[in-house]
Design a protein around this nucleic acid. Structure first.
Length: 250
DNA sequence: ATGTCATCTTAGAGATGA
C-alpha cells in the first residue's frame, strides 16, 4: 500500500499538477492540506476519474483538508471537537484509519494564533485517545512544527519563531507518545529531507527548507520505504510543499 | 530569507495568510 501527504496550497490552482502526479505515483491513500476551496468546489469528479473516492472538509479561502482513497472510504469524520476551521479529516481507507491534518501555523509567539495552535494540538491528542494504537492508523499532514533543530535549514534563524519552540515540539511528541512513529524519509538533497521551502528568495534552489510535513504511523503499519518527492516542488505551478510518499505493509 | 504565490474584495490594487 502506498500512502502520501501533500500540502497543495490550493487544490484549484494545483489541479494541473496534482492529477498527473496521482497518475504517476499512484498512491492508494492520500492526505491533502490547504485545499483552499469550499466543499462545493472540490474536484470529486476529476479524482473519481482516477479511481479515488474523496472526503473533504473546506469552507473556502483558507485551510481545507481531504482524504483520498482507492481502497474504499468509510467512517468519515470532518470535525475536530471545538474547532470550526476545516483542518481535520478522518476516514477508514480499507484496513487503514487515515487522518489528514493541517495544524495552525501560529504566526508569531505573541499572536493569539500561537495559543490556538497549541490548543488545537491538544485537541488532536485527545482525539487520538478515542482510537486504538494497536490498529493500523496514520496521522498525515502539515504539522507546522520542526521536531528537531536539524529539521530547519538554520536553527539560529528561528530564535524568536514559531515551529521550533519547546511547547510545539512537546505537543508533537505527545502525539508520538500515544503510539505513533515519525516515519523517516530517505535523505534528500541534504541529510534531512525537507518538505517545505518558501517561494521567496530562492529558498528551494538553495535547499533552505523545513521538515514540517509528517507521516505518523502506529506500529501496526510496517514501513517499507519513504521519500519526499522534491520533483513535485519544482517547475511551473508548484506548491511550496513537496509530497511525502510512504510504502507500507499492514 | 522577507526576493512569491493564492485568494478575496469589488472592478484593480490592496489586504490577508503562509
Amino acid at each position: 500500500m502506498r500512502l502520501a501527504t501533500w500540502n497543495v496550497n490550493s487544490i484549484g490552482a494545483r489541479l494541473p499538477r496534482l492529477l498527473p502526479w496521482l497518475e504517476e505515483v499512484a498512491p492508494d491513500v492520500v492526505a491533502l492540506q490547504e485545499t483552499k476551496c469550499a466543499d462545493a468546489g472540490f474536484p470529486h469528479i476529476e479524482l473519481s476519474a482516477l479511481g479515488y473516492e474523496s472526503a473533504h472538509a473546506g469552507d473556502g479561502r483558507w485551510n481545507g483538508v481531504a482524504v483520498l482513497s482507492r481502497l474504499g472510504l468509510s467512517e468519515v469524520s470532518l470535525v475536530l471537537d471545538g474547532h470550526p476551521e476545516p483542518r481535520f479529516a478522518s476516514a477508514r481507507c480499507g484496513p487503514l484509519q487515515t487522518l489528514s491534518v493541517y495544524v495552525p501555523n501560529g504566526r508569531s509567539l505573541d499572536d493569539p494564533h500561537y495559543a490556538y495552535k497549541l490548543a488545537w494540538l491538544q485537541s488532536l491528542r485527545e482525539r487520538l485517545e478515542q482510537a486504538d494504537p494497536a490498529v493500523p492508523l496514520v496521522v498525515m499532514g502539515d504539522m507546522n512544527i520542526a521536531l528537531r533543530d536539524e529539521d530547519v535549514w538554520d536553527i539560529t534563524a528561528f530564535r524568536e519563531s514559531t515551529h521550533v519552540t519547546a511547547a510545539e515540539r512537546a505537543a508533537l511528541q505527545s502525539l508520538l507518545d500515544w503510539g505513533l512513529v515519525d516515519v523517516q524519509a530517505r535523505p534528500g538533497k541534504g541529510e534531512v529531507p525537507f518538505t517545505y521551502w518558501d517561494y521567496r528568495a530562492g529558498m528551494m534552489h538553495k535547499n533552505l527548507g523545513m521538515r514540517i510535513d509528517y507521516v505518523l504511523a502506529t506500529r501496526a503499519v510496517q514501513v517499507r520505504d519513504a521519500w519526499v518527492d522534491r520533483e513535485a516542488r519544482k517547475g511551473k505551478g508548484a506548491s511550496d510543499h513537496a509530497p511525502v510518499v510512504v510504502d507500507v505493509d499492514l
